[in-house]
Amino acid sequence: MELKEDEIAKREEFTRRVEELSGQNIFACYQCGRCSAGCPMVSKMDAIPSMIMRLLQFGDMRVLEKNTCWVCASCYTCDVRCPKGIDIAKVMEALRQIKLRTNINNIDIGKIEGIEELPQIALIANFRKNTG
């Protein structure tokens, strides 16, 4: 599949933006898969963390349609195991922020089931990751 020049520019801009927000070198990833192997939430993800990294290397904006960054629990396991020292948790945060900064929240905070039993710590942490 051959890409037109303006498509390449858009993709490069997208990866650059993710690198800027996360402070990580996306192209350092050599697809070893350790992040995916250690991720505690991987079974619920549309695309596993190492796949997200690969798609980002191609500037593929379909990563924004995957649920990966929303299922991510910011546990930093991927961070500490990456042999290239890539902070993948920061990459996930960058993807979340790209969506949230368009003023679209990931949850409707007014419609939380069972809010009576939830401790503040859970709500505060959740809203920090799921709302802008």
Partner: peptide, 15 residues
């Protein structure tokens, strides 16, 4: 009355 009573009606306070 419970510790999160305000958050139940106004969850945005957690933000």
């Amino acid at each position: 009355p419970s510790p999160n009573i305000i958050l139940q009606s106004y969850p945005e306070v957690a933000r």
